[in-house]
């Protein structure tokens, strides 16, 4: 077993390997803390029960579907791990 993966079994907080950490957390069904907190439009808390902050996954990306119960703003925020450019034209 890879060293980082083994460590992450014992202490998920300190592993330097984010991908493995993610895998381990999923395997253990650990409850993550949802990172996002505030409405990007009005600044109200998105954690209030009348709002919707729904985390989900698009391939390797973590996405947050947000609907603000205060100002009704709806949108998605995607956490960026790696910045990529679209495939460039070949000719």
């Amino acid at each position: 077993m890879c060293e980082t993966l083994k460590e992450s079994l014992f202490d998920a907080r300190e592993t330097p390997c984010p991908l493995n950490q993610e895998v381990m957390k999923m395997a253990e069904n650990k409850v993550d803390e949802i990172k996002l907190k505030y409405c990007p439009n009005c600044g109200e808390s998105l954690l209030k029960p009348n709002s919707l902050l729904n985390e989900y996954w698009i391939s390797q990306d973590t996405a947050y579907f947000c609907w603000c119960g205060e100002c009704s703003w709806r949108g998605e925020i995607i956490e960026i791990i790696r910045v990529t450019a679209p495939e460039l034209a070949t000719s």
């Binding site: 954690l47 029960p49 919707l52 902050l53 985390e55």
Partner: peptide, 10 residues
């Protein structure tokens, strides 16, 4: 994934 509070409200 939702917070426990939002799941309850739902």
């Amino acid at each position: 994934m939702l917070s426990k509070e939002q799941n309850e409200a739902l």
